[in-house]
């Protein structure tokens, strides 16, 4: 019984953590990290995601601004495409930022994958969202759970209940349980 509980526990941990190791590298997430980093003022490092010239277009003089200058950071679902002027794996991602002063920037970030096909960086931005809707405009979220994932959540509830029952069974019953 003890071995069964141990194995069950390990399976539960693996079930939860292993999928998180899968490398999906969504371009929308990269754009979001870039904007979040830009919003941290001097503490931020947006250069990991985009050249400084691109960052300056969105938030001029960002290094000297206080953290939290951007009141709204919104990123929509992007579109990947194959050729155009970029190598395979490029993507367009719509975004919107609003400064505390009320200045709004709506643009589309263009990303390009690295030479080895992994990672991606923002190479430039274009004004407007090029027909791509943001979530606040009724557009789709960056990603959604599949029906199988919803079923898996219900299955996880059942699994955790059984695991709890197994653990409780391991605890020996006493003839005088502690109750008030």
């Amino acid at each position: 019984m003890r071995r069964l509980a141990t194995v069950a526990g390990l399976v539960a941990v693996a079930t939860l953590l292993l999928p998180a190791c899968a490398g999906t590298d969504r371009p929308e997430g990269i754009v979001e990290r870039w904007l979040t980093s830009l919003n941290q003022g001097a503490a931020g490092r947006p250069s990991r995601y985009a050249p400084d010239s691109v960052s300056q277009e969105v938030l001029p003089n960002w290094r000297n601004l206080d953290p939290g200058e951007l009141d709204v950071i919104e990123v929509g679902r992007g579109r990947t495409f194959v050729s155009l002027s970029f190598v395979e794996g490029a993507a367009r991602v719509p975004f919107r930022v609003v400064e505390a002063s009320g200045r709004e920037v709506r643009a589309t970030a263009l990303l390009q994958r690295g030479p080895d096909g992994t990672g991606a960086t923002i190479v430039r931005i274009e004004p407007g969202t090029a027909g791509l809707l943001l979530p606040s405009e009724g557009g789709p979220p960056i990603e959604s759970a599949t029906p199988a994932m919803w079923l898996a959540a219900a299955g996880a509830a059942l699994f955790f209940a059984l695991l709890s029952a197994a653990l409780m069974a391991l605890v020996s019953r006493h003839r005088r349980p502690a109750t008030a």
Binding site: L16, P19, A22, T24, G29, E32, V75, A145, M149, W150
Partner: peptide
């Protein structure tokens, strides 16, 4: 981990949180 917009298998914090509530 599940909802991380770059690498998460669900890719949505909202859906990851709702699934966690159900679980």
């Amino acid at each position: 981990l599940l909802g991380d917009h770059v690498t998460g298998p669900i890719g949505s914090i909202g859906d990851a949180m709702s699934l966690t509530s159900i679980a």
